[in-house]
């Protein structure tokens, strides 16, 4: 029977009052405007395009490179390589974590490997990768995969270990075992940690990729954003370098603020697993 004290309406997150939201936006805009003014002022004061172009020059370069499609093409190359490396890293991480969940030996293997490789910056493996895979996409995929693998595996594994025992019992009680239990109960229950791992993995992968591209572009065709930045610096087109950096930042912000935020809103936030 519905009983007054026991019943609550399904909670809907109370939206912040409109005024407060506007205040937040205004504050952020003020910070951005201040930073922009400082940039523009310093650029004009130093008056040396080869060292520090003004904000307006940078924005003009950014606009020109966007219209010509150059930035988009370079970003597409970078993101394609990133996708390959990220995918490879995730696949390996999933295999390792499933193995670690299934057996004690796997768990030991995973914690030993993550302890060894997590502190090792992926970019440090680039010289070796070049030796093994040559100048080209496979080397980039290797270092990106390495940068993603350990962060994701470490997070996912600790997420699985933090699952309340009752939830696991519920799965067993429903008759789920092995793979079924892992996929239907453990994976969704560990999702907050898995998404945190994906976020960290993304940040590592993006930085690693840009850094690796600074060393070489993908062979034959034009390289990605990192290579673009390197090329323009060699041509002393510093405003273009700044525009390239802006593009790197913008893509990072979009993935963080739009893609991951949407993923969280649809899953862990909706389920109350994360506030």
């Amino acid at each position: 029977m519905p009983d007054g004290q026991d019943l609550r309406l399904p909670a809907t997150a109370a939206p912040p009052p409109l005024a407060a939201a506007w205040h937040g936006i205004a504050r952020r805009a003020a910070v951005l405007v201040l930073l922009g003014l400082a940039w523009e002022g310093y650029g004009r004061w130093i008056a040396n395009d080869l060292v520090f172009p003004t904000l307006s020059d940078t924005l003009a370069a950014f606009w020109r490179l966007t219209l010509s499609g150059e930035l988009a093409a370079r970003a597409a190359v970078s993101l394609q390589v990133l996708g390959l490396g990220y995918g490879a890293g995730l696949l390996l991480a999933a295999l390792l974590v499933v193995f670690a969940v299934a057996s004690r030996f796997g768990s030991e293997l995973l914690s030993t490997l993550t302890a060894m490789f997590n502190p090792l910056p992926a970019i440090a493996l680039l010289p070796l990768a070049l030796l093994w895979f040559g100048l080209g996409t496979p080397s980039l995929v290797f270092v990106i995969g390495h940068s993603v693998l350990w962060a994701v595996a470490l997070n996912a594994h600790s997420g699985v270990q933090a699952i309340p025992p009752t939830l696991r019992r519920v799965g067993e009680n429903l008759g789920l075992r092995g793979w079924q239990l892992t996929l239907r109960i453990l994976a969704p229950a560990a999702l907050p940690a898995i998404i945190a791992g994906l976020r960290i993995g993304w940040a590592f992968a993006w930085r690693t990729l840009i850094a690796a591209e600074l060393v070489f572009g993908t062979t034959s065709r034009s390289g990605g954003l990192g290579w673009f930045i390197y090329e323009r610096r060699n041509n002393l087109e510093i405003a273009d370098v700044f525009a390239g950096l802006l593009a790197v930042i913008a893509i990072g912000l979009v993935v963080e603020g739009v893609i991951f935020r949407a993923l969280e809103a649809r899953t862990v936030r909706r389920w109350g697993l994360q506030r």
Partner: peptide, 20 residues
């Protein structure tokens, strides 16, 4: 020999529902 839904259990903990 093993757990199964022919013996469904209601646990003491509130957090026994699948949150997703």
């Amino acid at each position: 020999t093993q757990p199964g839904p022919d013996r469904m259990m209601v646990f003491q903990e509130f957090e026994q529902l699948l949150p997703w």
